[in-house]
């Protein structure tokens, strides 16, 4: 009897260390943040001293126009950067997936922007966007075109461009890896059947790459929702609130307004949003796989 019990418990005992570490490393900080979001907590207090206010922080945020504006900016920013980066990154991968001389050097150069520290990227772009001495305006001026108020009138567009510059390589490198691991037999078969290069891309390469692309897109999306340093350095969220994405607002709420509880509540809203997106994307992926399996089954039945 005792042996049977021990046998049943053995797997759990093996799992126990991992569970304990997970609970400590993952769940505790998360729980701390959730607990903090129910409190009127200022950084001069310990969490225990802070007054419990229930859902007040969440309700206040729900009606706060500045929070809405930040959320809007975040959604716009994430939508534009991820969609443009996906198109450019996958496009570049499709173009460079071939044997050209010096391709490895070219590939390394493409991924350089990703390796630069975000603060440096922010500073670099800020100076390139400088109204008088910046690279872009000097160039425009040089060819006789009117200069552009990059970080003033077009601040959101400017930070989107900088982000695209930095993160397109990430999508490029993952797409390239996906492309190179595609089954050559399918492509060969298509070529024998007379498929054009464009048809191969649309009907074979992209559908086969889809699972990787979904994960890549998701990773970029999560990252785009959390980007902070580059924007902080470039615009500090301005002018007005036009580039104040949620991560920046959270940081300002915690440090400038000294409202840790509200900042925690805002982080939780962001977390919920990201969870929803992740679930939605995986559900979509699953749905596509099932559909593909169904089509496959139908094809087999027909045979």
């Amino acid at each position: 009897m005792r042996t049977a019990m021990a046998n049943r418990l053995t797997p759990y005992m093996f799992m126990a260390p991992a569970i304990v570490i997970m609970a400590l490393a993952l769940m505790y900080p998360l729980g701390y943040m959730i607990w903090g979001s129910f409190r009127d907590w200022n950084p001069s207090q310990t969490i225990g001293e802070a007054e419990f206010v229930g859902l007040k922080n969440y309700i206040t945020l729900w009606g706060d126009p500045n929070f809405h504006e930040s959320l809007g900016v975040t959604l716009r920013f994430a939508f534009f950067v991820v969609s443009i980066e996906m198109v450019l990154g996958v496009g570049l991968a499709l173009l460079l997936d071939r044997d050209i001389r010096g391709i490895s050097v070219l590939r390394t150069m493409f991924i350089l922007p990703m390796m630069i520290a975000p603060v440096v990227v922010g500073l670099m772009w800020r100076y390139m966007y400088h109204p008088t001495v910046g690279t872009f305006n000097r160039f425009l001026d040089g060819i006789g075109l009117p200069t552009v108020d990059w970080l003033g009138q077009h601040a959101l567009m400017s930070i989107i461009i900088a982000d695209i510059w930095q993160w397109t390589p990430f999508i490029f490198i993952l797409s390239l890896a996906a492309l190179q691991s595609l089954p050559r037999s399918a492509l060969e078969a298509a070529r024998i059947d007379g498929a054009t290069a464009w048809q191969q891309v649309i009907h074979i390469k992209l559908p086969l790459m889809m699972p990787v692309l979904i994960v890549t897109g998701l990773l970029r999306l999560i990252d785009a929702f959390k980007v902070l340093e580059v924007i902080l350095v470039m615009t500090e969220g301005g002018p007005g609130l036009s580039t104040e994405i949620l991560a920046l607002r959270i940081s300002r709420t915690a440090t400038e307004f000294r409202e840790l509880g509200v900042a925690a509540a805002m982080s939780n809203y962001l977390l919920i949003l990201l969870l929803l997106l992740t679930v939605a994307m995986f559900a979509f992926n699953r749905w596509q796989e099932t559909r593909a399996a169904r089509v496959q089954a139908l094809v087999e039945e027909d045979d």
Partner: peptide, 21 residues
């Protein structure tokens, strides 16, 4: 005052809208 940080930030972002928008 302790809540000045919040008021100051609102004032600053609103004035920025006056200047740019």
């Amino acid at each position: 005052i302790p809540v000045w940080g919040k008021i100051n930030a609102d004032l600053g972002t609103t004035l920025s809208k006056v200047l740019t928008e």
